[in-house]
Simulated scan of single mutants.
Amino acid sequence: MGEISVFESVTLDGVLQGVGRPDEDTRGGFGHGGWGDGFADEVIGRFVGSRMEGTGALLFGRRTYEDLLGHWTSVPETNPFTEVLVNQRKYVASRDADTALAYPHSTPVTGDVTEAVSGIKRDVEGTITVLGSGELVRSLHAGGLVDEYVLLIHPIVLGSGTRLFGAADRADLVLEESVTSTTGVVIARYRAK
């Protein structure tokens, strides 16, 4: 049986929107895109690399799937992410049953997402990593399906933007691991109780 691991970059005030690029996610007039620029270092690189090795499958919301894979497959420099993203088994949650998935090893997840993801957890061995996909994460959190949260907490406060948990109900978590990067990013791994 698989476990759901949510892997997110967030600000100190919990914003996950638009971490990578200025035009990544401007919904709601969000003007702080690219806020994660300048924080990457070797500590984060090693941690992310070690986490990707243990992944049995990736789980995305459709918008994150298209953006993330579209970006990393168009980057000309060699990097450790493109090969993993393309070759790993991927599940993509979408409200549209006719969604066309452009990348190999991709399976659409439609209908009741919590029911579908419960089935995926039963069928997949290892870690099922959710990258980005804030709306999907909030649904999985509400459904009690998340086993762990790996948060890269950046030392920045934006004051606006989509937050990871939104108005979620209380959830008690247990800190399993924490590492601090040279740029002040706290990498915290929490287990759901």
Rank of each mutant, 00 (worst) to 15 (best):
G2N: 10
E3R: 15
E3Y: 11
I4C: 03
S5Y: 14
E8H: 07
S9R: 11
V10I: 13
T11F: 06
L12H: 04
D13A: 03
V15L: 02
L16E: 14
L16H: 07
D23Y: 09
D25P: 08
T26F: 13
T26P: 07
T26M: 09
R27K: 15
G28E: 00
F30R: 00
F30A: 04
G31D: 11
W35I: 00
G36H: 04
G38N: 07
F39A: 09
F39E: 02
A40T: 11
V43M: 11
I44Y: 07
G45I: 00
F47M: 09
V48R: 03
G54Q: 06
A57M: 02
F60H: 01
G61W: 03
G61M: 05
R63Y: 12
Y65V: 00
E66D: 14
L68R: 10
L69R: 05
G70H: 01
G70S: 03
H71T: 10
W72T: 12
P76S: 04
E83T: 12
L85V: 05
L85T: 06
N87M: 08
N87I: 04
Q88N: 08
R89G: 12
R89N: 09
Y91A: 08
V92K: 05
S94F: 02
D96H: 13
A97I: 11
D98I: 01
A100F: 14
L101T: 05
A102L: 10
Y103G: 07
P104S: 03
P104Q: 01
H105F: 15
H105L: 09
S106P: 05
T107E: 15
T110Y: 04
G111C: 04
D112W: 00
V113C: 02
S118H: 07
I120Y: 07
I120W: 08
V124A: 02
E125Y: 08
T127R: 12
I128D: 03
T129R: 13
T129L: 13
S133P: 01
G134L: 09
E135F: 08
S139R: 13
H141I: 05
L145M: 08
E148C: 02
E148I: 04
E148T: 13
V150R: 08
V150L: 11
V150C: 12
I153N: 11
H154P: 03
P155L: 08
I156D: 04
I156A: 12
V157S: 01
L158P: 00
L158N: 03
G159L: 01
R163F: 00
A167N: 14
A168M: 05
A171Q: 15
L173W: 09
L175E: 03
L175V: 10
L175I: 05
L175Y: 04
T180H: 14
S181I: 09
T182G: 15
G184Q: 07
V185T: 10
V186W: 15
A188D: 09
R191K: 02
A192L: 11
K193M: 13
K193V: 12
